[in-house]
Amino acid sequence: MTLPEKPASGAEQPTMAELAEGYASKAGLHRSSNGNIDVLKSAGGVQGIAESVLPGLVFLVAFTITRDLPVALIGSLATAAAFTIARLIQRRPLTQALAGVVGVGLSAWLANSTGKAEDFYVLGFFTNVAYILAMALSIAFRWPFAGLIFGFIRNEGLEWRKHPARMKAYKIGTWVIISVLVLRLVVQVPLYFMGEAGLAALATTRLLMGAPLYILGVWVAWLLTRPAPAPADPGTERS
């Protein structure tokens, strides 16, 4: 009988911890040295938060002052482009900045096409709905989003799917994240239909309920899905 060959020592397989870190990073989540979620880093750090907030803030301020839609749109686009240039200079990954430029560009095109300043925020509604549907489907098919993300961070891999209690916990965690996205729509859609009269409130709530609120929802979901502590060893207690 021929025994299977062992892998060469120079081609070591990545550990579960390394896989977890890589998967979490691709999902936009990062963990700290103690194994918890690094909230600030998951939000993209100070620069990442600024990239998500400032283009919309510049649009609101410019439109409020000038009442000129093209000027406000150009200001927003220029801000998003400036962050991309900054990342090029810093030699940092461009994914987040480029996604921001594309998003701002599409939003600006839509608002410019309709001539309505509030349409600058319409794209975000459709993005929210898409995420809500995707996460709801992940629960329906027993692959809850929270489990896919947190399971790797916690080095559970996909073993959590074999345990009903863990499956239930990750379903609840996913519903928490969904509730954040639904809350955005509940608050912001009525403001959108108010037209220009609701623009300031819509823009303000978009800033407050953007990345910071999403990361807060993820953090709450993380806390709710913590595994139960292992029972103490009776022998240890007697000693």
Score class of each variant (00 low, 15 high):
residue 194 M to P: 04
residue 163 H to Y: 01
residue 135 M to W: 01
residue 79 T to F: 01
residue 1 M to K: 12
residue 15 T to L: 06
residue 50 A to T: 12
residue 93 P to V: 12
residue 105 G to F: 05
residue 98 L to A: 10
residue 141 F to R: 00
residue 75 G to Y: 04
residue 203 A to C: 03
residue 125 F to I: 13
residue 13 Q to A: 15
residue 200 A to V: 14
residue 32 S to F: 05
residue 239 S to H: 06
residue 158 L to W: 05
residue 67 R to T: 13
residue 29 L to S: 04
residue 193 F to I: 09
residue 55 P to R: 07
residue 142 R to M: 09
residue 132 I to E: 03
residue 111 A to Y: 04
residue 1 M to D: 08
residue 186 V to I: 15
residue 112 N to E: 13
residue 178 I to M: 06
residue 191 L to C: 07
residue 174 T to K: 00
residue 11 A to G: 04
residue 37 I to R: 07
residue 213 L to E: 04
residue 190 P to C: 04
residue 186 V to S: 12
residue 236 T to D: 13
residue 131 Y to W: 12
residue 235 G to L: 13
residue 36 N to F: 08
residue 209 M to N: 01
residue 72 A to R: 14
residue 19 L to N: 12
residue 182 V to Y: 00
residue 41 K to Q: 14
residue 30 H to D: 08
residue 5 E to F: 06
residue 29 L to Q: 12
residue 153 I to F: 04
residue 234 P to Y: 03
residue 23 Y to F: 10
residue 86 A to S: 14
residue 176 V to A: 04
residue 110 L to I: 14
residue 163 H to C: 00
residue 153 I to G: 15
residue 40 L to S: 07
residue 88 L to P: 06
residue 216 L to D: 01
residue 141 F to S: 00
residue 87 R to W: 06
residue 178 I to Y: 00
residue 223 L to R: 15
residue 164 P to L: 00
residue 167 M to Q: 07
residue 165 A to L: 08
residue 159 E to V: 04
residue 13 Q to E: 14
residue 100 G to K: 05
residue 182 V to N: 02
residue 37 I to K: 13
residue 183 L to C: 01
residue 166 R to C: 00
residue 19 L to I: 14
residue 14 P to D: 07
residue 226 R to K: 14
residue 25 S to F: 07
residue 169 A to H: 10
residue 143 W to Q: 06
residue 5 E to Q: 14
residue 211 A to I: 12
residue 211 A to D: 02
residue 153 I to D: 04
residue 24 A to S: 14
residue 127 T to M: 11
residue 57 L to Q: 02
residue 25 S to R: 15
residue 31 R to Q: 13
residue 230 A to C: 05
residue 212 P to N: 08
residue 10 G to P: 03
residue 158 L to C: 03
residue 164 P to E: 00
residue 68 D to A: 13
residue 168 K to R: 15
residue 56 G to D: 00
residue 217 G to E: 05
residue 86 A to E: 05
residue 3 L to C: 07
residue 161 R to S: 01
residue 177 I to P: 01
residue 166 R to D: 00
residue 29 L to W: 10
residue 76 S to T: 01
residue 215 I to V: 15
residue 232 A to F: 03
residue 220 V to A: 03
residue 230 A to R: 13
residue 100 G to A: 06
residue 112 N to F: 14
residue 207 L to F: 00
residue 65 I to A: 13
residue 193 F to R: 13
residue 206 R to T: 13
residue 87 R to S: 13
residue 239 S to C: 05
residue 167 M to R: 08
residue 16 M to H: 11
residue 114 T to N: 11
residue 18 E to N: 11
residue 225 T to D: 02
residue 7 P to L: 09
residue 105 G to D: 10
residue 229 P to T: 06
residue 100 G to D: 06
residue 39 V to A: 12
residue 31 R to G: 08
residue 216 L to F: 07
residue 90 Q to H: 10
residue 93 P to N: 09
residue 51 E to T: 09
residue 149 I to D: 02
residue 207 L to Q: 02
residue 161 R to W: 00
residue 167 M to C: 08
residue 54 L to Y: 02
